[in-house]
Design a protein around this nucleic acid. Structure first.
Lengths: 196, 196, 196, 196
DNA sequence: TATGAATGAGAATTCATTCAT
DNA sequence: CATGAATGAATTCTCATTCAT
C-alpha cells in the first residue's frame, strides 16, 4: 500500500465526513466542516482525497467493505438458505442500527450518486445485493425455494423492504417496535412467499 | 383566484423542473436551466414560486396528488384485499414506468428532503403508504391475512420492495424482464408471506 | 400645465413615496411599495414619473415648494431681522414636527442626492437657505447684526444647527424638551452671537 | 491573534471602502469595486467582514475612533472652556479637510444608517458629540457659560453648524473662504451666544 | 506533509422598467 | 390612461480548490 492510507488522517477524514454528510447531506456539507471535524486543515483533505466527490466515493468503498466483511463473517457458518436469509435481515438491520450515519449516507447519497458521479460504479453495493441472490439460487438448487422465483427480483425486493424499513427506523424518533422484530417479520414474509 | 396556478406558466415550470431535477438532481439543477426549459425568464420563476426549494416542494405536492388520485381510482372498484395488493404493485410500477422523471425525483430527492427542507412534512407520501396498510388491515379483518402481521411493517416492506425494484428498472438500460412480471412476483411473495 | 399633474394620482404617488422613502430610505424602497401605498399599479407610476429617481426629485421639488411657501408666508409680516431669525427657527422646527416624513427624506436623502443624481441641482433648497442669509444681510444693513459676520457662513451654521436638532428630535422617541424651547435656545445663541 | 485586523488586508479594505463609498455612496458601491480598489479578490472581503453592511460599520468604528483620538489629543492640553470650544471647531474642520472621504461617508451614510442597520448604535459618534456637551457643562460650572443653556441642545446645534458648513466646504469646488475662518466665525457665534 | 489565507467562478434572487391587453 | 405579468440585467455572497510558506 502506498502512503495514502498509512496515515490515520485518511481514516479520520473518512470518519468526519461520514458524520458531516449524514448530518447535512453531501451538497450542504462544506469541506471545511469535514476538516474541522477531523481536526485537520482544509488543505490537508486534498492530500488524501482528490476532491469532495472523492471523499464520498472513498467513504462508500470503505464503509461498504466493512459492511460486506461483517455480513460475510456472519453468514459463513450458516448452511441453511432460509436461515441465511433471516440472518441477513437481522444482521443488516443490526448494522444499520449500529452505524446510523453510514446507513443514512448509503441510503440517501447513494441514490443520487448517479447524478454527480456519472462514472462511479458502486461495485461493492452490487456485491452486497448479490449475497441475497446467491442465497436464493442456493435455496433453489437445494429445492427449498420455488424455481420460478427470479433471484434478481428477490434480491431487490428483499433489500428494498429492509432498506425502507431501516430508513423509517432511523428517522423515526420513537421506535414502535424492536428492529429485530421487523427483521423477523420481513424475512418471514419472503420465506413464506418463496418457499417451495 | 390568485395569480398562482390559474396561469399555465405554473404548470409549465413544474413540468420543466421535473425534467431538469430528474436529469441533474436538485442541487446540480440551476434555476436558469428550469427557466430555459419552461421558456420563461429567470425572474418569472419567482412570481410563481418562493425559491428553489419551493419548486421542489410544489412539484412533490402536485405529482404525489396525481399519483394518489390515480392509485385511488384504480383500487376503488376492487374489493378483495389480495387482489388490491397485487393491483397496487402493478399500478405503482406502471406509474413509475410512465412517469420516470417523477419517479426518479420522488425516489432520489424525497430521501434527502429532510436535509434541506426541515419543516416540510411529506403528508401525501404518508397517505400513499397508508393505502397499503389499510389494505392489510382490511385483509386481517376479513380473515385473509395473518393477524400477527404488523401493517406498519408491511407497508414499508412492500413499498420498499417495489421502490427498489423500480429504481433498478428505471436506471438499467436493458430491461431483463417485464415490469409487470416483477410486480406479480413481488406481490406474490408478500401475499404468500402474509396469507392466513 | 399638461395632463401630468391634473390627475390627483400624481399627488397620491408623491404622498405615498414620501411615506415609503421616509420609512425605508430611497434604495430600500421598492417602486411596487409606493404603488401599493398609492393604490395604483406599478406601471402607472411610469405614466407620471420617468423613473424612480424622478419620483424623489419631484418629491423634493413639491415638498420644498410647500416648505418655502409656508416659510415665506410666516416671515412676510415680520420686519425686525432678529424676530425674523427667531421665527425662522420656530417655523422650521414646527414644519419638521408636522411633516416628519418629509423632514426625514430631506435630511437623509438630500445628502446623498449628489451621489445618484449628479445633474440634479437642488435650487429650492438653496433658496430656502438664502432666506436666512437675506435676513442676515438685512440685519447688517439695518445695523443690528455685526458687519464682519459672513452671511454665507451663518446661513449654513444656523440651518445646520436647526437641522441636527430636528434630526435628533425626530429620531428620539422620548422628547426631553419642547421643540419650541430648542428653537428659542438656538436662535438666542445666534442672535447673541451676531448682534452688533 | 484572530485573523481579523492583524493582517494589513483588513485596513486595505477599509481604505478602499472609504474611497469607494465616498465616491458612489453605499448602495451604489459594489463589493467588487472595493475589492478591486483594495487589490484583493471579492471573496477575500468576506474573510475580513461579514457582509457589505459590516464593512460600513467597521469603517465607522475605525474612522470615528481615529477622529475621537485626534480630538481628545488636541483638546487635552487646553483648560479654558471657551478656548476648547473654539479649538473643537478648528480641529473638526481641519479633520474634515484632511479626510474628506471619511467626512463625506460619516455625513451622508451616517444619516441613513438607521435605515439599513437597525441594530447599529453609533456609540462613537455619541461620544464625539458628548465632548461638546462636556465642554459646555464644564463652562457652566466655571461660570463662564450661562446656566440656562441646555448642553444637549448646544452639542447638537454646534455640531450641526460645523457639519453643515463642512458639507458645503467639501462639496463646493471653489472655496470662497478659508475653512479656519469659518471655524472661528461659528465658534464666535456660539461663544457670544452662550457666554454668561 | 500540513497549513489556512486567498482566490474567483458560479448561482440564487431582486426589482426597476416595459408593454400587450 | 391603467394595469400587472413578465423580463433579465445586476449583485451579493459562497465555497471548492490552490499554493506559498
Amino acid at each position: 500500500m502506498g502512503k495514502r492510507k498509512d496515515n490515520n488522517k485518511y481514516y479520520r477524514i473518512i470518519e468526519a465526513a461520514t458524520k458531516i454528510f449524514a448530518q447535512k447531506g453531501f451538497y450542504q456539507a462544506k469541506v471545511s466542516d469535514i476538516a474541522r471535524e477531523a481536526g485537520v486543515a482544509d488543505g490537508t483533505i486534498y492530500i488524501y482525497f482528490q476532491n469532495k466527490d472523492d471523499i464520498l466515493i472513498s467513504l462508500f468503498e470503505e464503509q461498504m467493505q466493512m459492511v460486506l466483511d461483517n455480513m460475510m463473517a456472519e453468514l459463513s457458518p450458516i448452511t441453511d438458505p432460509s436461515e441465511k436469509l433471516t440472518r441477513f435481515a437481522q444482521v443488516h438491520l443490526k448494522l444499520v442500527q449500529e452505524n446510523q450515519d453510514v446507513a443514512e449516507i448509503i441510503q440517501v447519497e447513494l441514490r443520487q450518486s448517479s447524478k454527480f458521479m456519472k462514472e462511479y460504479k458502486n461495485e461493492k453495493f452490487a456485491k452486497y445485493l448479490n449475497i441475497i441472490s446467491d442465497i436464493i439460487r442456493e435455496g433453489q438448487e437445494k429445492g427449498v425455494f420455488r424455481k420460478e422465483v427470479i433471484p434478481g427480483v428477490v434480491k431487490r425486493a428483499f433489500f428494498g423492504a429492509l432498506d425502507e424499513m431501516s430508513r423509517f427506523w432511523v428517522l423515526s424518533s420513537r421506535k414502535e417496535y424492536d428492529i429485530n422484530t421487523a427483521a423477523l417479520q420481513i424475512s418471514s414474509y419472503f420465506l413464506n412467499g418463496i418457499r417451495a
